Simulated assay, not measured.
Amino acid sequence: MAQAWKCSGLRWAAGGPVLLWDGGRRSALTWGKRVAFGAADGGVRTCVGARGHACPVRAVVPGRSTGARCEECARLDRAHSVAADTIADDPRPYHVYLAWFGPGMVKVGITAEERGSARLLEQGAVCFSWLGLGPLMAARRTEELLRAALRVPDRIPYGEKRAVRSRLPASEAERAAEVEALHGRAVGLAEWPESLTREPCQVVDHVGVFGLAGLPGAVGEVGELVAGGWVSGELVAAAGPDLHLATGRGVVVLDTRLMTGWDLVPAAGGEAGFTVPVREFREAAGVQDGLF
C-alpha cells in the first residue's frame, strides 16, 4: 500500500511555492513539474485542528471547505487571528498595503512588518505597494478609513482573482497604474492617523514570480477532492494558494487549501488527468522523498 501524506498547505519561499506536509517535509514546486496525487480510497476528510493543536474529535469536514476545520476549531482559530479584530495589544509594527489583482480589483489590508511580502504572495496579489507603517490599531483605523472614504474593499473573492489572471495588462506600468493612483489619494486623506508613517509608492510586481506571463486561460477549477479521486497535471503557474495545472482538457486550477485534511497518496503510473469534480468555466479562464 502506498504511503499516505497529509498536506499542511502551500507556502511561498524565496525560491517560489512549496507544499508543506505533516512531519516537516516540503515539496518545492517548479514550472513544468508534474503534480499527481489521489485521495486515499475509502478515506474521509478530517478537521485540521486549530493553532497547532489537533481536533479533539477528528471531525469529518466537507470536501468543498477551504478551511478544513470543524465549527469549534474554526472558532478557536479565528479568535486568535489579527483579522478577527480581537487582538488590540500586539506590540509589533504593521504595514498597511494596497494590493492589485486585476483591472478594477484593488484591496487594502494589513500585515505584520516582520512578515515582509509573504501575505501578498499568499493572497495572490499581482502587484502591491506599502501605504503606511505603524501600530496595529493605527493600521486598522487606516484600513477602515480607506474603506469608508475611498470605497476600497478589504476582501476580494478568490474566484474573481482567478478569472482575470490570464487577461492581465501586458506591461508593469499598466498593472501598477491603479495602485499608484489610489496610493496618492490615500496618503492625502486628512483623517490619516498621526502614529502611522506614510510610505512612498513603490509597486512590486509578481507576474514573473507567479508565472503569469502568457498564462493560458483556465477551463475550470477543482470543486473538491473525493475519496479515490485523482489529480494529475503539469504546473504552469501558481498564485496565492492556487496551482494552474495543464491537463488534456486544458488548464485547471487547484486551490491547495482543498488538499488539507485528506490522506493523499502518489499517483500510480497509469493514473492521469482529473477524476475529481471540476467546475467548468463558461470561458477559458521505498521511503518517499515526496508525494510527487
Rank of each mutant, 00 (worst) to 15 (best):
L29Y: 00
C55M: 02
G270C: 10
A190F: 04
V204E: 09
G23P: 02
E72A: 09
A213C: 10
L291Y: 03
R75D: 09
A284V: 14
E180L: 12
A268Y: 08
S171R: 08
C201N: 12
T275F: 06
Y97G: 08
P93K: 01
G273P: 03
L150R: 03
G269F: 06
E271C: 04
A238Y: 03
A112M: 08
G250K: 02
E72D: 11
E180V: 15
V61E: 03
V265I: 09
D289I: 00
R75E: 10
D154P: 07
G269R: 14
R167V: 11
A83P: 00
A138K: 06
E72K: 02
E144L: 15
S166R: 10
V203M: 10
T142Y: 11
P157E: 12
A83H: 14
A84P: 01
P200S: 00
L235C: 02
M1G: 15
L215P: 12
Q202A: 15
G261L: 02
E199Q: 15
T111H: 13
A88T: 13
G134Y: 01
G159N: 06
G270I: 06
L121D: 01
G132T: 08
G240F: 06
E180R: 14
V278D: 02
P216G: 10
G23Y: 04
L120I: 09
R185F: 03
G109L: 08
A14W: 04
P56I: 05
E174G: 14
A54N: 05
L258Y: 02
G248P: 03
G24W: 04
A14C: 08
P91F: 12
A227G: 01
A284F: 13
L19M: 00
E174Y: 06
A227V: 05
R51C: 07
S117L: 12
V126Y: 02
R185G: 00
A284G: 13
V35G: 04
T275A: 13
G228E: 11
M105L: 13
T275V: 11
Y94I: 06
P200Q: 03
E221D: 04
P56C: 07
S129Q: 03
V126M: 04
Q123T: 02
R151A: 13
L133G: 01
L131C: 09
E271S: 06
R151L: 13
R64A: 15
P153V: 07
A50D: 00
L29C: 00
G250C: 05
T46E: 11
S8P: 04
L131G: 05
W230K: 11
L19T: 00
L19Q: 00
C201F: 12
A181M: 13
R279Q: 11
G9K: 01
L146Y: 08
V179F: 01
G286I: 05
E160D: 09
G67N: 02
H206N: 15
S27W: 10
T275L: 07
V203F: 08
T275I: 10
A59G: 02
F292V: 05
I110H: 05
R11Y: 10
